[in-house]
Design a protein around this nucleic acid. Structure first.
Lengths: 249, 249
DNA sequence: AAGGTCTTTGCTGTATACAATTCTTCAGCA
DNA sequence: TGCTGAAGAATTGTATACAGCAAAGACCTT
């Protein structure tokens, strides 16, 4: 989703956006805290103009909230908000899958997805999955989900799926790393992969309802990962956006 | 959705955004056309800084598209894109309705919606519905849909519903005016109102699936209005965003 | 005459200076 | 001691100046 460009050719606005996002996700800027433009200028090493541009973009992304009197603050999320964001993504991915199924896809379209599937199969084959394998899974999983959205061949749908996945904890692989240390880890990946397989099958057979349903259920897996990780206390450090989640009452 | 403020107290950025949006929706700026900042500055009567801010916001809104080499152009939509945008909104509203149903709502919550319903009832009671009545319907309908989204009590869901409704032709009342001149007009409003009634009923009875389903079907009504209006040729002038829709092949 | 290259012009991206508004703090009064 | 007011400081919103880049046109060469 975030293309990496050469360090110097990148625009100042993007540089500021990247820097600020990192500052937010690592918890340097805490939820509820007002973001001082001057402070941001200092941190990003650019002038105020691109910083303001970046702030607006981060607001649209959902990481910031506009303060009525001016300026922005870091948004904070309840656990419920996180779960709902995941549900939103699942719903949108379900729509994408349904449309793909109803409108039909060619084998050429699903080819790269099957390849993705095969690569993930290799990763989760061993009994014990290494930390690196988890990282590789995250990348492949993101690719699979991106390809799925494109299968709808609908720019508006793709756009909304992307926007729903923009929040780090709502993204398809948001909590995968969090479960890497958990014993249930492998089981969950196996189930997730089964979902992947089913959605492709359903789409190819033009079973819209099945394709939609399975993607919704698939997103619920992320929700389960979150609850598991919260209960286990600890692995949350692996998900950068954890600092945005305020302790629920 | 767009609050009206006093003309002089409004920020320059908002002024520019309003002016540009109007220019786009009225077709002064044509789809595919590159937007010159200088030209926009002249039109909005503000300096380049707020204009650039407005351009970024309009891009996020979906009306503009960033040009790789810099600057923005007016986005153009196929009829399919429009239908899909409506489907996206229906899906999100369906989610909101389902969550409201599953989580339960108090009578206090649905009170204002019932009031909305009653007012709409009065509007569509007469055999012939005046043009003004259509205008009044648009406002009440928008209010109903906004209240429905809030019934989910989920900020992430409300946010996504709002974003899905931001595109003028995807908004709940997008094509209502277009059918005002059509003979089928009253029938459609009656059916729409029936949907409104059912979704409230379903939510109060905690029937999540029914609430979701009816909202999806409800959005399809907008899609039907569009097709009807396109076929009738003419009433499209009443929907401002029509200029964004390129003739489908 | 056609193609390529160089120049020029206009644009966008960035930085900074200025203005206006808001927040804070301190003093005075009830 | 608490509250209200005003003044000051700081921060955001806006305007403008500058630099870098891309597209378009003209001229030269083949």
């Amino acid at each position: 989703m975030a293309e990496r460009e050469t360090e110097r050719s990148i625009s100042q606005t993007v540089r500021a956006q990247l820097t600020l996002r990192d500052l937010i996700l690592t918890g340097v800027l805490r939820p509820g805290e007002r973001i001082s433009e001057l402070q941001a200028v200092e941190a990003a090493g650019v002038s105020r103009t691109p910083v303001r541009m970046a702030l607006v973009r981060l607001e649209e992304e959902g990481l910031l909230e506009a303060i009525p009197s001016g300026g922005f603050m870091v948004k904070s999320f309840s656990e419920r908000d996180v779960l709902d964001s995941i549900e939103v993504r699942g719903t949108m991915e379900g729509l994408a899958a349904r449309l793909a199924a109803e409108r039909g896809v060619s084998v050429r379209d699903t080819e790269p997805m099957r390849e993705c599937l095969a690569q993930i199969d290799e990763l989760i084959a061993p009994q014990e999955i290494s930390f690196d394998a988890f990282s590789a899974y995250v990348a492949l999983n993101a690719r699979f989900h991106a390809l799925l959205a494109e299968l709808s061949r609908s720019p508006p749908v793709i756009r909304q799926v992307d926007r729903a996945s923009a929040l780090p904890f709502a993204s398809p692989s948001g909590f995968v790393m969090a479960q890497s240390a958990l014993p249930e880890a492998r089981h969950i990946l196996v189930v997730a992969q089964e979902h992947h397989r089913i959605v492709i099958d359903a789409i190819e057979n033009r079973e819209g309802a099945r394709a939609e349903g399975i993607m919704r259920e698939h997103a619920r897996l992320a929700a389960r990962n979150l609850r598991l990780a919260v209960k286990a206390r600890g692995p949350m450090d692996l998900v950068p956006a954890a600092v945005l989640i305020k302790a629920s009452s």
